[in-house]
Structures are given as C-alpha cells and as structure tokens.
C-alpha cells in the first residue's frame, strides 16, 4: 500500500537534510508505529508524504498503491486516500467546521467520480460519528479548531478521518495532550476503521496508545533514518529504557 524507498529530504530554504534515506512499507490491513526522539524527522516524513511545501526530496520515492505521491498536489494525494492527522491541527478562523468537512467530503467524492452527498445525509453521518467521539454538536458549528482545547483538536482530526474514510491513515502524535478517556475514544475511533484494506502509520512517543491500537510493526526513527524495526515488544523496550540502548546497538 504505502511504499517509501530511500527517501531523502532536505529543507528547501536551508541546506539541512532531515530525512536521510527512509525505507518503509505499510501493507493493507496493517498498523505500523513509528517512535523516535524529538527532532528525528517523524513529522517531516508525514508532511512530505502529504505534500506540504518547504521540503525538497533529493532522492528516493514514495508511492501509494503504486502511484507516485511526490509529484502530486496535496488534494490529489488526499483523493488517492492518504490522510494525515496533524500533530498540530491548524486553526482557521471564519471557516465553519461543518462547511469545511462537507466541502472536503464532497471534493473527495467528486475526485473519485462519486455523487456529492446531500446536506441531510451528511448531517446524519457527521452527527453519528461526532457522537461516537463525544464531540459536541456545538463544536461542529464553530470555526475549524478555533478555541478548541488540545484534546478537542485531536478528536476533531479523528472525526475528519472517520468522515473521509481514507485508505492510508497517518497519525502524528494524536495521543499527545489527550487525557486517559480521550485516548481511549481516539483509539476506539481508529480501531473502528481498521479493516483489511486500510493501512495505518501511527507516530507516537508513548506505549500507552499502542496498548489500545495494537501495532503489527514498530519502527524506531533516529536522525532521519529508521534504525530498527520489530514487533510490539520494541515499544515496551523504548518505554522502559529510552532510545540510548537502541542507538548504541545500531551504531555498534
């Protein structure tokens, strides 16, 4: 499904290489987790995959179901089924959350040759999904993320994911800033979407989220590379010992 090969990325503005050859494949139906120290390049990877400006790919490739992602506009990547739950969801004053989501859902339907969803069906659907995530109907009327608490923003990301039903979901620290109950809600939201055709890439610092969303594979990213991959036990090792041992082991 998602195939990243030898991906090297530098900042457009500076001569600073951030991703130094990333190899990663996520198969349909599988959940991969990425852990790694602050500044190791996890968010950069998620941004480059979703098409944010400011980065230059100097080598390597990234494809989704065989389609080259790196040449596409962000909206085209979304239409292919890529979704990023942002580490820092953006506030957009003046754009209502509901309008935003409806425009997004219908834009993607249109791109996939499907008919637009009418207002009534849309309302029904979003109300149901919001309820599952314990998102207040009032929040849907407010401008996108404006005045939302940290946890509300993260839940709003998951709501968008649930509405858009992407094929490949990247979650960048969606657990950060969530209380225990909210983390459970978010994990339930993710688990509800798990199916044989859908892949997940879950970026996190904490093993706790992975208790709820059982990953198939855990990768450790350090200094722009994936330095180790393994099963869920790798996350436990990190939780207990930090990254020092793993780094030492790799450089040895």
């Amino acid at each position: 499904m998602l195939e990243i090969k030898g991906l090297r990325v530098k900042l457009e503005e500076e001569d600073k290489e951030i991703l130094k050859g990333v190899d990663l494949t996520v198969e349909p139906g599988r959940v991969h987790a990425i852990m790694g120290p602050n500044g190791s390049g996890k968010s950069t990877l998620s941004y480059v995959l979703s098409g944010r400006e400011g980065y230059e790919v100097t080598d390597g490739s990234a494809t989704l179901d065989g389609e080259d992602l790196l040449d596409l506009e962000p909206e085209e990547r979304a239409a292919l089924g890529l979704f990023l739950a942002f580490q820092y969801p953006v506030e957009i004053p003046g754009v209502g959350n509901m309008t935003f989501l409806r425009t997004a859902v219908n834009a993607q339907r249109k791109a996939r040759g499907k008919e637009e969803m009418n207002a009534t069906d849309f309302l029904k659907l979003i109300r149901a999904k919001a309820k599952d995530l314990k998102i207040d109907a009032e929040m849907l009327k407010r401008p996108v993320n404006v005045g939302f608490s940290g946890g509300e923003k993260k839940r709003n990301e998951i709501l968008q994911m649930a509405m858009l039903e992407p094929k490949m979901c990247i979650l960048d620290e969606t657990d950060s800033g969530l209380d225990v109950d909210a983390m459970k809600l978010v994990a339930d939201g993710v688990n509800a979407l798990r199916d044989a055709g859908r892949g997940f890439l879950v970026i996190t610092h904490y093993q706790r989220l992975l208790d709820h969303i059982k990953p198939d594979v855990v990768h450790i990213m350090s200094d722009g590379r994936i330095i180790k991959s393994g099963g869920p036990e790798l996350a436990i090792e990190v939780e207990e010992n930090g990254y020092a041992d793993i780094k030492a082991e790799v450089t040895a």
């Binding site: 098409g51 506009e73 962000p74 909206e75 990547r77 969801p89 953006v90 754009v95 997004a104 834009a107």
Partner: peptide, 18 residues
C-alpha cells in the same frame, strides 16, 4: 491553513476561496 484544507482533499482554488 491552506495546506490543511488541501490535505483534506479541497482543491487549491476552492480552498483559497474558503
């Protein structure tokens, strides 16, 4: 903000209008 909208599948033109 523009990137956020586009990342959800809204094309650049309509996203700018929004």
């Amino acid at each position: 903000g523009l990137f956020y909208l586009r990342s959800r599948g809204i094309e650049e033109g309509p996203a700018t209008d929004l």
